[in-house]
């Protein structure tokens, strides 16, 4: 009872090498675009990394704020890597890539923040483990 037919021209399961890429992702294009991205990415990364180390070595910033500044710099550098090295925003299927990334970040966020929050409350409410051990003796 089926008429599961389609126009064979639309079906492109057999691809030659020329077709094996999506539009906007031409493998044979000049390398310049990639090299340029690599250079920009490296430039940003070097600046951000040096800034992070400098913050620790020299007292540039108000002491208690250093940790926050470091985290900000790290997140910025991760963004630089994602954009310039991993190309997640410019790929032909970037919507799905970015959605998957967002999902991953959500999970990581839940894991890390959730664990810290929960364990912080636990250690606040519970007797420290070494005291528990002493009671057992």
């Amino acid at each position: 009872m089926s008429n599961l037919e389609s126009d064979p021209a639309r079906f492109t399961a057999t691809l030659d090498d020329r077709e094996d890429h999506a539009p906007g992702d031409e493998p044979q294009e000049a390398a310049g675009h990639w090299v340029l991205n690599a250079n920009i990415g490296l430039g940003f990364s070097v600046v951000l990394t040096v800034a992070a180390f400098a913050l620790v070595i020299w007292p540039i910033v108000y002491g208690p704020a250093v940790a926050v500044a470091l985290v900000v710099l790290a997140i910025a550098q991760m963004g630089v890597h994602l954009v310039f090295f991993l190309h997640i925003t410019t790929g032909p299927d970037n919507t799905n890539n970015v959605l998957a990334l967002a999902f991953g970040i959500l999970v990581v966020f839940l894991m890390v923040v959730g664990s810290i929050w929960i364990m912080d409350h636990l250690s606040h409410n519970m007797m420290p483990m070494d005291q528990t051990m002493q009671m057992q003796r």
Binding site: M1, S2, N3, L4, E5, S6, D7, P8, R10, F11, A13
Partner: peptide, 21 residues
């Protein structure tokens, strides 16, 4: 599938079946 299906709506096979009948 001998030929890859071409889906035209929800409940892909139901629609095809109704049309065939």
């Amino acid at each position: 599938f001998a030929v890859m299906p071409n889906v035209e709506g929800e409940e892909a096979y139901w629609g095809i079946k109704l049309r065939a009948i």
